[in-house]
């Protein structure tokens, strides 16, 4: 009896449970769902719930037949609108990422050069908007950019313009929204790598006669590269699939893939096409995601190595 009890007890303390619980969870609720998306992207649209036909069928004599249906993909391939949507999403996301980098780099650099008590306040001020509602931060820009919004009112009062500019429902507004919402994601990794730079290297560059710009270009910028890449990936990847920002700020003229998947799914109720679009988007994103993962792994391995 005692033996059994001890066995039960030791099975609870063994690392087996520590592995199986999070691992099992992620397998079931993260990996398997993607396999299902892949599967459904190859099936037909059907009326009813769920609105797709089964992929595998048991034919007589117990033969399992797998029907791979490429119609969804060929449908997407023949409609140029989808191709343009993918390209537009990528271009908008890249411009947004560059915008974040241009605004975020000087800020991260300034924070890294500030001494601790104030530095923490400055960092917290970067993190704070990131914690407040994403949706409400996008909403704030509707009030600013709309025809009778703050920006147009202010510009008319100054006398720069006489009639309101069309700012809302444009691709410009979408890019602005992306820069605004994802700026903290850029600043934090940038700060982390800028903070680690050994200042004596910069001083050595100055001693050797480098001008500030040269010292930046030859020493600081290359050393901050891991932060630049990590920050850019953290902005680029979610920005490509962004739904809320193009929906609220982009209007009908801005087509982004996240919005198209949403509409295929909720408005057209075409789950197979939505799945195929999602699979294609993942293929698009696999390279940036792989870069980010490798960087993340290398950094963590460096940490784990004690």
């Amino acid at each position: 009896m005692n033996k059994v009890l001890r066995k039960v007890q030791s099975s609870f303390t063994s690392p087996f449970w520590a592995i199986i619980v999070p691992y099992g969870w992620l397998l079931l609720f993260f990996l398997i769902p993607f396999l299902i998306v892949l599967k459904i992207s190859f099936s037909d649209l059907k009326l009813g719930l769920p609105p797709y036909s089964p992929l595998t069928e048991w034919v007589e004599q117990g033969v399992l037949v797998i029907k791979l249906n490429f119609t969804n993909y060929s449908f997407i391939g023949t409609d140029a609108l989808y191709l343009f949507t993918y390209l537009d999403s990528l271009i908008i996301a890249i411009i947004g990422t560059l915008g974040c980098l241009c605004i975020g780099y000087p800020m991260a650099y300034g924070i890294a050069k500030t001494d601790p008590p104030l530095r923490i306040v400055l960092l917290m001020m970067v993190i704070l908007p990131f914690w407040t509602s994403f949706l409400l931060r996008v909403y704030a820009w509707i009030g600013i950019l709309s025809p009778h919004g703050f920006l147009n009112t202010a510009l008319i009062k100054i006398g720069l313009i006489t009639t309101p500019l069309t700012l809302i429902d444009t691709t410009f507004a979408t890019i602005l929204g992306i820069i605004y919402c994802y700026l903290p994601f850029m600043i934090l990794p940038l700060f982390a790598s800028l903070e680690k730079i050994d200042h004596s290297l910069v001083e050595a560059a100055y001693d050797l006669g480098a001008r500030p710009f040269q010292a930046f270009l030859r020493v600081i910028w290359p050393l901050s590269m891991p932060g630049v890449i990590a920050g850019s990936m953290l902005v680029l990847i979610p920005a490509v699939g962004e739904f809320v920002i193009p929906e609220l700020l982009g209007g009908s003229q801005t087509l982004m893939i996240g919005k198209v998947i949403w509409n295929e799914f909720f408005t057209n109720r075409d789950w197979p096409v939505a799945s195929a679009l999602a699979v294609l988007m993942l293929i698009f994103l696999i390279i940036p995601i792989a870069i980010f993962q490798r960087l993340q792994e290398r950094q963590v391995r460096f940490l784990d190595a004690d």
């Binding site: 592995i19 999070p22 691992y23 992620l26 397998l27 079931l28 609720f29 993260f30 990996l31 398997i32 769902p33 993607f34 299902i36 998306v37 459904i40 719930l49 769920p50 990936m233 953290l234 990847i237 979610p238 490509v240 699939g241 962004e242 739904f243 996240g258 998947i261 949403w262 799914f265 789950w271 939505a274 799945s275 999602a278 988007m281 993942l282 994103l285 995601i289 980010f292 993962q293 993340q296 792994e297 963590v300």
Partner: peptide, 26 residues
């Protein structure tokens, strides 16, 4: 396992949402 634990961080929300719904329906 390491990849699996960081992947949800970079996955576009639209895809995660769609994938989970399909799982629940299935």
């Amino acid at each position: 396992f390491g990849i699996l634990t960081t992947a949800p961080l970079v996955m576009p929300e639209v895809i995660t949402g769609l994938a989970l719904l399909l799982l629940f329906v299935g």
